[in-house]
């Protein structure tokens, strides 16, 4: 009986300990997220206007029929009408 009680106490203490560790951990994560969120964005400011420049020294050249496969178009891509002869880029 006494042994059972000690075991029960041990289990209860272990669970309590686990829960408090869990709470402390989630608190830390929450605080950190809040901090980084604040430093990332100033809520009072407006988004900054930016003129994006191409990142590729030699842009990717594709034809219009390749667009659905490419899934996107941006500053790094030149899209030609479906006329392959205009693409100067050599095959690797």
């Amino acid at each position: 009986m006494a042994l059972q009680l000690t075991l029960d106490n041990l289990q209860t203490n272990y669970i309590k300990q686990l829960n408090s560790q869990k709470m402390a951990k989630s608190k830390n994560i929450k605080t950190e997220t809040k901090k980084s969120g604040k430093s990332q964005i100033n809520r009072q400011e407006k988004p900054k206007f930016e003129r994006v420049k191409p990142l590729l020294k030699i842009p990717l050249e594709i034809t219009r029929d390749m667009l659905p496969g490419a899934n996107m178009v941006d500053e790094n891509i030149i899209v030609f009408d479906n006329n392959l002869s205009t693409i100067k880029q050599d095959a690797e």
Partner: peptide, 16 residues
């Protein structure tokens, strides 16, 4: 292989 990233040459991947 037909997506934007897949079409990039090795020197273009380096740029990015």
């Amino acid at each position: 292989s037909s997506s934007f990233c897949g079409l990039l040459k090795h020197y273009q991947r380096r740029d990015l």
